[in-house]
Amino acid sequence: MRRLAMIVLVVAVLAAVPFTEASNAVLNFLVVALLIALAGQGWNVLGGYGGQYSFGHAAFFGTGAYVTAVLQVRYGVNAWLAFALGIAAGALVGAVIGALTFRSGLRGSYFALVTLAFAEVLRIVASVAPITGAGVGTLIKLDLRHEALQFQSRAVFYWAILGLVALSLVIAWAIEHSRFGAWLTAVRENEDAARALGVDATRVKLGAMTLSAAITAAAGCFYAQYFLFIDAGIAYGPWISVEALLTAIIGGAGTIFGPLFGALLVRLLGEAARLVTGDAPGLDLVIYGAALVLVVAFAPRGLMGIVADIRSAFRRPAPRPTAEAAGG
């Protein structure tokens, strides 16, 4: 219950930001950071709790974004419905890729490769298929009405993405406190042992992948609605696969708050790099890459691990190890 209270607290603090004197630039920064946090939480469900490292979450992000945009632009579907269908389509893509890969028993390097390949196939298809607008991309018409899921004020967009992030935090919390989550962690720690104990590993991984894809797809749907423009390079590009993974790993894979704090930190570093170098491309990503290597090398449990270490350092030394300390 303490974790749940933490979620409420963190979300409440973030929700108060628009009431301060925050400029549009700050809000915009936070919207993008939360968007990445949401995509990262999707990655975290599969990669953090399930140990299946996907290098191609762009497949889900892009599917969400394209379905949301194309349904509105070409078929006149209501934006809210398009948003929901985008999430469903992302989940479906996740289920299909998951069914194909997990049934063939692909793990580790192979799994990373095959997810990467699926994302690339989708990117190439989207860059030539007429329905996606091919190379030109898809532009959603500006229509600032609530029915069209577009808002005059940036604050409303901000609260919307914050709401989605809050939901994803609760999902992560629920995973940690469910039987499904226990199975998933067992599969991560030792798949063969988990199978021997009667865990249906394929089904558990498939469930995690579908949920993971749905969450990342929601980030894609929101991207389309917020920026009103997508093309193949944005929607299915490797950047989002890398950022989703990066935020989760840097924040702490397999923790509730890891992706959120990871996204905020990574995006802050990126902004700092941009301040130093102006608009020259590349340096922010160099820093992201370096942060990833450094975290893996020196803080394998990410930011959340560092926080836990600091907290335990300040706690009075316990006479003997307690169950709570082992919970991490």
Binding site: L245, P281, G282, V286, G289, V293
Partner: peptide, 18 residues
């Protein structure tokens, strides 16, 4: 896997920057 991915991002973007 993660470290090689991180190195790829670093090398590629350092070249882009330079």
């Amino acid at each position: 896997l993660l470290v090689t991915l991180g190195l790829a991002v670093i090398i590629e973007n350092a070249l882009l920057y330079a």
